[in-house]
Simulated assay, not measured.
Amino acid sequence: MTINNTNETFPISDKNIQGLTDISIKYSKIILSVMEEAQKNIVGQEEVIKKIIISIISNGHVLLESVPGLAKTLMIKTMAEIFSVNNVRIQFTPDLLPADILGTKIYKNNTGTFEIQKGPIFHNFILADEINRAPPKVQSALLESMQEKQVSIHGETFQLDKPFLVLATQNPIENEGTYKLPEAQVDRFAVKILINYPTIDQEIKIMERNTSNMQIKINPIVKLNEIIEMQEFNEKIYADNIILKYVAKIIDATRNPKKYELDLENIIEYGASPRASIWLIKTAKANAMINGRGYVIPEDIKEVAHDVLRHRLILTFEAEADEINSDTVIDRILEKIVSP
């Protein structure tokens, strides 16, 4: 696993930014250890692992999508073990109820009173497995906890412990027995990561690992308080006003493509929300940290753009009929908007 270092190309003159870079280099070494530890349990998928770490550092929820059998759940379980946090796996099914996730009030005969029985949502990492197999009512039960980091149970509100992240997996909507996630919930995921099939060499390694008596032990690398420290430091990484303007133009191009001479009016039905611009900056900062920089460069934005935007663009029926997906649209926008 290699991490690109661009310090030579973009020299730092400001002492404050140099201090941020020094801290970023320290954290990048820890993150490299996390990636190497994850590779003990997961064959290939380096970019996917990196994007999950970026989302954790930026304190954003993750949505993983692929066909069944590509180790989505294994990836998330592995990351939870490496980050040494309280985690729980919730298997989403058609008969799941909101109370099964959030909790409910239970009557106690011995005291004659109702007591709150907290649900599995009260953990640091929530592994929401096959989230699109549960009906919309259950999916929507996560909305408050994902955005406000709190849970309301029968009129009582409870704050969730930090860090709190939902790491969800879903199978493509074409698969039978799935329910499309509500747009309001999809927008609350910082990134949507697509997982591709392994190469032939990786397939052979997967077979070797899973058809022998090989025992793999994952060691915790990062403690809970260290995660919070990294998340707080991520906010301090410097993003120049030029970078902010660059991101603003990218987002504006999804809403007003004609303004940027992009022929996308019949392709994009609804552009990205302001949440997209926020997460573009946050995840770009995390990407900068991984690369040992205390400042954001345009390449950081480009590297996370597809994962941040692909689930936030709503395309027209014409686009779907022509088999044009969000990634194609994002490519065209990034090509058109000149980077600083």
Rank of each mutant, 00 (worst) to 15 (best):
G294D: 13
Y295D: 07
E320S: 13
A319K: 01
T316C: 09
E303L: 11
V304K: 02
K285Y: 01
V296T: 09
M289Y: 13
A319F: 02
M289R: 08
L315I: 11
K285T: 03
R332I: 03
I297Y: 06
D327H: 05
A321T: 12
H311E: 02
D300T: 01
R332N: 13
L315W: 09
L309M: 14
E323A: 11
R310N: 15
T328W: 05
A305Y: 04
I324R: 01
H306Y: 15
G294K: 08
R310V: 12
K302C: 02
E320P: 11
N291F: 06
G294R: 05
T328E: 01
D322I: 03
I314L: 09
R310S: 13
T328P: 00
L313C: 14
V304R: 02
K285N: 03
P298F: 11
K285C: 02
R312T: 03
V308Y: 12
D307L: 01
I290P: 04
R312Y: 07
E299L: 09
K285R: 15
L309C: 08
V304W: 05
D300H: 00
E299F: 07
E299G: 03
I314Y: 03
N325E: 08
R332W: 01
E303Y: 13
D300W: 00
M289E: 14
G292A: 12
A286K: 00
F317H: 14
T316Y: 08
T328I: 01
